[in-house]
């Protein structure tokens, strides 16, 4: 495994104990991952109180469904992160569609773009994800980061990058294929 990839042993072991109903294991998982997950949710929902709400619901979901975790389908950290991201995305999508005309939204889009770039910059140089993202053309890299890090839809990425929707969809399609080829 490449340096920079997370050590997954801890979370995987904790999920197995949570599946057996050990509340202490859930507490340990919260200590280890809670702060990170609130930050992940906040990049998508933007408000701290909503991000905490997302993480609270996610931990209840983890408690109920830990028996369904299947380690052959990815690491426990990826699983719990997906639960948090999906809940944050649902909140974002259900809450409102963006109206690009008001200034508040334009500021919001600017903040999201900054968060997306910060996440990329924070990747360790040795992490092959950084290498492979760096090899993509800039628009493709930005489009992928805006979707993944800040939860934008294709339409919102198009508005942020001031590019036609069809072009953005093609960037993301070709970009994610190239990324997977580079990573494998």
């Amino acid at each position: 495994m490449l340096a920079g990839a997370p050590n997954t042993d801890d979370a995987d072991g904790l999920i197995l104990r949570i599946a057996k109903g050990e509340r202490a294991a859930l507490a340990s998982l919260f200590d280890a991952e809670g702060a990170r997950l609130v930050a992940v949710a906040q990049r998508i929902v933007r408000r701290r109180d909503l991000a905490e709400e997302v993480v609270q619901e996610s931990f209840l979901a983890i408690w109920r469904s830990a028996t369904q975790f299947d380690s052959s389908r990815g690491s426990a950290r990826a699983w719990i992160t997906r639960i948090v991201r999906n809940r944050a995305l649902n909140l974002l999508r259900d809450g409102h569609r963006m109206d690009y005309h008001d200034t508040e939204t334009l500021t919001d889009l600017g903040d999201r773009a900054a968060d997306a770039m910060a996440a990329f910059d924070a990747l360790e140089e040795r992490d092959s994800l950084k290498l492979c993202l760096s090899r993509l053309d800039e628009p493709k890299r930005r489009a992928i980061l805006l979707c993944y890090v800040t939860g934008l839809s294709h339409g919102e990425v198009a508005a942020t990058l001031k590019a036609p929707l069809g072009t953005v969809k093609a960037w993301i399609r070709r970009g994610t294929i190239a990324l997977q080829d580079c990573l494998s």
């Binding site: 920079g4 990839a5 997370p6 997954t8 919260f30 200590d31 991952e33 809670g34 702060a35 990170r36 609130v38 930050a39 992940v40 990049r43 905490e52 052959s72 389908r73 990815g74 690491s75 950290r77 990826a78 992160t81 997906r82 996440a119 990329f120 924070a122 990747l123 360790e124 992490d127 092959s128 994800l129 950084k130 980061l145 993944y148 890090v149 994610t176 990324l179 997977q180 990573l183 494998s184």
Partner: peptide
């Protein structure tokens, strides 16, 4: 599974401690 495990590096947001 492969892609989500690799993209996870973007979610290593540094935070102080769990609230």
């Amino acid at each position: 599974a492969d892609l989500s495990d690799r993209m996870l590096s973007l979610d290593n947001v540094s935070e102080t401690e769990a609230p």
